[in-house]
């Protein structure tokens, strides 16, 4: 009995020893890589901040109006954001390097997937950001145009345009990532088609008289010039 227990204990110790001798050195190396990566990332962040702040990059962005294109308040700290991005990029590289030290099937697969997906994620992110920006741009332009043309519900029209542009961007991003592209595309088509159908039905059933009045008004306007508010110049 005692012998059996001794054998079990020896096996456990041997397995523990094997595991320690197998995984401890890579773990130590991984930790070292993480520490070095963290320090290097911090250094890069500091360097970038110093370089661009010294060159007055934020001021340049503010004065050229580029910062307000991205951030409505016009107080975008582009240098801090870029430096943070570089920090996380370098640190993420360090994490992947540290994981690859273990050289197991799981870690290898994880690293490969991350490396493979990275450009796609960046592209998809850029598409969504561009979509948001474009949506805002078109939304504002449509809002002002609709107001000046005295079109009713200008804000709703602008919001619709904004949402539509963002939806298109999301569909494009999901297609880039290969993430359920058919589902997004189908959803998009259903939403746009549904909206068009709903609008047609609404106009056909509820707004027939309004449309008729509008068209009559339009014809009348075409024949009789509208009286100007005043002479401007």
């Amino acid at each position: 009995m005692i012998r059996t227990l001794q054998e079990v204990l020896e096996r456990v110790i041997a397995r523990f020893y094997t595991q320690i001798t197998t995984y401890l050195p890579p773990l130590i190396v991984a930790v070292a890589i993480l520490v070095v990566a963290f320090l290097f990332a911090k250094f890069c962040q500091w360097l970038l901040t110093r370089l661009f702040k010294g060159a007055g990059f934020d001021r340049f962005l503010r004065e050229t109006g580029i910062s307000s294109v991205v951030d409505d308040s016009g107080h975008l700290h582009a240098v801090s954001i870029a430096a943070s991005c570089v920090f996380w990029l370098v640190f993420a590289g360090g994490v992947l390097s540290a994981l690859s030290v273990f050289d197991t099937k799981l870690t290898t697969q994880f690293v490969e997937t991350a490396v493979f997906l990275f450009p796609k994620v960046v592209t998809a992110g850029a598409i969504v950001l561009a979509g948001i920006w474009l949506g805002r741009y078109f939304g504002r332009a449509i809002l002002v145009w609709a107001h000046n043309e005295a079109i009713p519900h200008a804000r709703r029209i602008a919001a619709g345009v904004r949402a539509l542009v963002v939806c298109i961007a999301i569909v494009a991003a999901s297609d880039t990532l290969g993430f359920a592209p058919n589902v997004f595309l189908a959803a998009f088509i259903i939403v746009v088609g549904g909206a068009a159908l709903a609008a047609s039905l609404a106009v056909g059933l509820g707004g027939r008289q309004t449309v008729q009045r509008f068209m009559e008004e339009d014809t009348r306007h075409a024949t009789e010039p509208e009286e100007p508010l005043w002479r401007h110049l």
């Binding site: 503010r62 004065e63 580029i66 307000s68 016009g74 741009y137 504002r140 002002v144 107001h147």
Partner: peptide, 14 residues
């Protein structure tokens, strides 16, 4: 300072 598209800004003055 180009806080937004210049055309939109000016049209919003109307």
């Amino acid at each position: 300072k180009r806080r937004l598209d210049r055309g939109t800004l000016l049209r919003s003055l109307t």
